[in-house]
Amino acid sequence: MTLGPHAEFILAAYGACALVIVALTAWILFEKRSLEKTLGRLSARFEASKTDKNS
């Protein structure tokens, strides 16, 4: 299979599409990891303060 005389435009289009989707997915995954870390830290601190208050 050949891509013809406009191969660079076809490859650039597929490359741009892949780049945008990979960047979006990576951003969502990176944000999830960061949010889970922050939530874990805050939850632990909140539980500790509740225990202190009760004791």
Partner: peptide
Amino acid sequence: TLHMMAMRNEILSRRIRTLRLKA
């Protein structure tokens, strides 16, 4: 798929905000 992942992030983000407000 991406929408569900992003919605999950937004829910986590709002939980963080609630905990910060409580703190």
